[in-house]
Simulated scan of single mutants.
Amino acid sequence: MDITSAELPDAAGMRAYTAAFVDYLADRSRLPLDYSARSLRLVDLVLDGMRRTRSDRAEVEGLLRGLGGYTGEVLVRRAGGRWVDLDEAQRAWFAQPVGVRMPDGRVWNPLGKVVNRFESGPEESVERFFLLLHGRRRTPVECL
């Protein structure tokens, strides 16, 4: 099955979903996605390339979900967050079923941030989102 056509799982399944997506991209494009904060710059560049070559969001929805999952997994691994299922009000606000809760209790929407970068361009940087993120641990969390 093509991982880009898969639906998003619940919070408990996001780590496996993201790992499958990273493997999918590695097999097809050799992108060095290593779950580092620096790799989010590569996510920005990939999204910029997608903006230039594919203007229709529906055409790249699966890739956007996968890159959003990857961005969220970087928050989990490097900033102390954890995947959470969003409640009804949060789903309506974020337009996503899952988010990342940071150690200070705030919930962030990395999937939506990726969509914003695709739709709006460089002013919505995924890398900057991570670097300026409130509520993250000051020291990186080791990969699990």
Score class of each variant (00 low, 15 high):
132 L>K: 11
58 A>D: 15
108 W>Q: 04
110 P>L: 01
141 V>Y: 00
79 A>I: 03
3 I>Q: 14
119 E>N: 13
57 R>W: 04
68 G>C: 05
127 E>Q: 05
139 T>Q: 12
140 P>T: 06
106 R>M: 10
17 Y>G: 09
85 D>E: 12
134 H>W: 01
46 V>M: 12
57 R>D: 09
106 R>D: 13
80 G>W: 02
19 A>V: 10
57 R>H: 11
43 V>S: 08
86 L>C: 10
138 R>W: 00
15 R>L: 04
120 S>E: 11
110 P>C: 00
88 E>G: 07
135 G>P: 07
78 R>M: 02
61 E>I: 10
67 L>N: 09
84 V>P: 05
140 P>R: 07
113 K>F: 00
105 G>P: 10
135 G>V: 04
67 L>G: 06
138 R>T: 07
139 T>Y: 00
140 P>E: 14
110 P>E: 06
13 G>M: 02
33 L>R: 09
68 G>T: 04
38 R>T: 11
39 S>H: 11
57 R>P: 11
15 R>G: 02
74 V>T: 10
100 V>I: 07
52 R>H: 14
33 L>V: 12
103 P>N: 12
6 A>P: 02
21 F>R: 08
101 R>C: 08
70 Y>H: 06
90 Q>I: 00
72 G>I: 01
126 V>P: 09
77 R>M: 12
140 P>Y: 02
51 R>W: 12
30 R>F: 03
24 Y>K: 02
28 R>W: 00
127 E>T: 01
